[in-house]
């Protein structure tokens, strides 16, 4: 009896996870793979169409556009985010007063729902009565069409996303900075290294593992861009803020192309894997 119990117990404990995994993870992944070979609008029976979804995807200008947009977002967002976070973390790592207060303030937008931030920034960015343009005009600078100029809309969203998330990365990097022993800097100072030298030659290399995490995290977050364009621009102007997720959402829930949407999802998932893998390699090699 006892033997049986100790044999069965682990499996009983694992069972809820196993069931959840089968229903919520395994089945959808398998079903998703099956869907990519079908045409299905939920209403009519699924139709096997072989590789047609993949072929259509290759010649779908909006797929490439949304890919390009996501890439543009990442190229602006990731360096801006990591750079700003690094600078703020470095400052917070100095011997200063009220550091706790500043840390808490920087972190505030992280906990607040993206919906709030998006609604707020849509107002800040408004071209006629928005705060930012009013400020620019009062400084004698020109008006910027933040959300309606195809070249600017995506960078504007990237800036907003940075504002929202940078606090998290400040905290992560600060933890990393605090783990670098003071002696290393002291020794460098004696050797006559300037502060900038110290930052580039000591801080950055020693932060490498955390930097890697930060870059990967902010890349993955960037790939899941959805609510920002959904609320602010609906993917426009000229589809310049159509993110991959928004495009998947639209194919699935505006056009009911479940097979094609699943294909897009699969390709995007593959891309996330690939980009993260490359980043891991590059950053680890670099330092």
């Amino acid at each position: 009896m006892r033997r049986f119990r100790s044999f069965a117990a682990p499996y009983a404990l694992i069972a809820p996870y196993g069931l959840h995994f089968l229903v919520i993870v395994a089945f959808p992944v398998v079903f998703s793979l099956i869907l990519t070979f079908h045409q299905w609008n939920l209403l009519s029976p699924m139709k096997w169409i072989g590789g047609v979804n993949f072929l259509n995807l290759l010649s779908d200008p909006l797929f490439w556009k949304s890919l390009w947009n996501t890439f543009r977002f990442l190229v602006i967002h990731v360096p801006l985010q990591v750079g700003t976070a690094l600078v703020l973390a470095e400052i917070l790592n100095q011997r200063l007063r009220a550091k706790g207060f500043f840390r808490a303030v920087f972190f505030l937008p992280v906990v607040i729902s993206g919906v709030v931030v998006t609604i707020l920034w849509k107002q800040l960015y408004a071209s006629e009565s928005g705060i930012i343009n009013t400020l620019l005009l009062s400084l004698g600078l020109g008006r910027v069409e933040w959300l309606t100029d195809p070249l600017i809309a995506m960078p504007a969203i990237a800036i907003m996303a940075t504002w929202k998330n940078v606090g998290l990365y400040v905290i992560l990097l600060l933890a990393g900075l605090q783990s670098i022993p003071r002696q290393v800097y002291e020794a460098a100072t004696i050797d006559g290294a300037s502060r900038l030298d110290q930052f580039l030659r000591i801080t950055v290399p020693m932060l490498n593992p955390i930097l890697l995490t930060v870059v990967i995290l902010s890349t993955i977050n960037g790939f899941s861009l959805f609510i920002e364009p959904y609320v602010m621009t609906a993917g426009g102007p000229l589809n310049s803020t159509l993110s991959m997720n928004l495009y998947i959402y639209r194919q699935a829930f505006a056009f009911y192309k479940m097979g094609y949407a699943a294909t897009l999802g699969l390709v995007l998932a593959g891309m996330i894997f690939a980009v993260v893998a490359v980043q891991r390699r590059l950053i680890e090699k670099e330092f």
């Binding site: 849509k122 408004a126 006629e128 009565s129 069409e145 602010m232 621009t233």
Partner: peptide, 8 residues
């Protein structure tokens, strides 16, 4: 025609 998004 305005090329803007208005909240009002």
């Amino acid at each position: 025609f305005p090329r803007s998004i208005f909240q009002e």
